[in-house]
């Protein structure tokens, strides 16, 4: 052991009761998240009995969506070894829009309004899992340079889906289109209460299931070959994680609609603020950051913009800027 190493070990032992740097970052994020949630819950309340339960429900929705989006994005980026991919870039969002549009087109807008929210939800989740299952699992079963192939296919599918949706939207009655459009813009304001319970249950189940793969995540991030060399059953693990991702994305999209850039944004902020590569820090950090962003964003929407805009507009604006920054940064360093 070199002298510097010995020194750092001694220093580490001395500082043992203090928190490690990544743990400290987690605590800071946790406190900020608490403050953001507390502000959101309490600012401008006149009638506590009325406002508090309603806002608390929104906070629950935010926490659920924040966790689902950030967890699925981090998992997806780990599996694909790429930090500017999100499940939405390869067509998940577009599929959701297509399902909604298709149903409006076929059965009319009243169908969307009157259909039991839970059946609609289960239908969405089912179709999206099927899609992920068929497309992504098959593509990932192959070996070689499949990543760019996957992205390409995903982009093609995404374009196909959104063009199909566009086409159908053109043919819709303007009134029906209006109903559809409201259901497509992500919004915490119109989260269905009936959905919250089923969303909590499915996210909890799929998260519990994903825990068995937790030890492999750090290794998976090193790439397919290294992971296999270190004894990870790569194809099987990736397949299972893809299903987990599909469920998480479906649940969050069905709950508040597509939030394209949100996952990208929070995952990358997590990578930047977290002085560690371990997923046991990255995943909670990304989750907390998304709660901060959602609660803060919603606060802006309600107090500054007075409900004149939705969270997806704010998120896509901030996310788009950040995405440009990431691309430019990569271009400069590469």
């Amino acid at each position: 052991m070199s002298q510097a190493d010995a020194l750092s070990v001694r220093r580490a032992q001395k500082a043992a009761p203090a928190l490690s740097p990544p743990a400290r970052v987690l605590w800071v994020l946790f406190l900020i998240a608490c403050v953001a949630v507390a502000l959101y819950l309490t600012i401008g309340v006149t009638d506590w009995g009325f406002a508090l339960p309603r806002r608390a429900r929104k906070v629950l929705a935010m926490a659920l969506v924040g966790f689902a989006v950030s967890y699925s994005t981090v998992l997806f980026q780990t599996v694909t070894n790429n930090k500017i991919l999100t499940p939405s870039i390869i067509g998940f969002d577009a599929l959701y829009v297509l399902i909604q549009t298709g149903m409006t087109f076929l059965f009319g807008a009243m169908f969307l309004v009157y259909l039991d929210a839970r059946s609609l939800f289960l239908m969405n989740v089912g179709v999206m899992i099927l899609f992920a299952g068929v497309l992504y699992r098959r593509l990932f079963g192959r070996e070689g340079a499949h990543l760019y192939f996957l992205v390409l296919i995903g982009v093609v599918f995404g374009t196909l889906f959104s063009n199909l949706s566009n086409f159908m939207q053109r043919l819709l009655d303007p009134n029906e289109f209006l109903v559809l459009q409201t259901s497509l813009f992500a919004s915490i304001n119109n989260v269905d209460e009936d959905l919250l319970l089923i969303a909590v249950l499915s996210i909890a189940a799929v998260t519990l299931y994903s825990l068995r793969f937790a030890p492999y995540l750090d290794v998976l991030a090193l790439g397919r070959e290294t992971a296999i060399n270190l004894g990870v059953e790569h194809a099987m693990t990736v397949n299972r994680l893809m299903i987990v991702i599909a469920v998480l994305v479906s649940v969050s999209t069905a709950l508040v609609g597509p939030i394209t850039f949100f996952g990208l944004l929070v995952a990358n902020v997590a990578y930047q603020v977290m002085p560690a590569y371990h997923h046991r820090y990255l995943i909670p950090a990304a989750g907390l950051i998304s709660v901060i962003a959602l609660a803060g964003g919603q606060l802006l929407i309600e107090r500054v913009f007075h409900f004149q805009t939705t969270i997806s507009v704010v998120v896509n604006f901030a996310g788009g800027l950040y995405f440009l920054y990431l691309v430019l940064k990569q271009a400069r360093s590469g």
Binding site: N81, N82, K83, A221, L222, G223, E225, T226, N229, Y277
Partner: peptide, 13 residues
Amino acid sequence: AILRQENHISVRL
């Protein structure tokens, strides 16, 4: 154990 010719790791280690 195997070490391949080209190794690219996107994680900062």
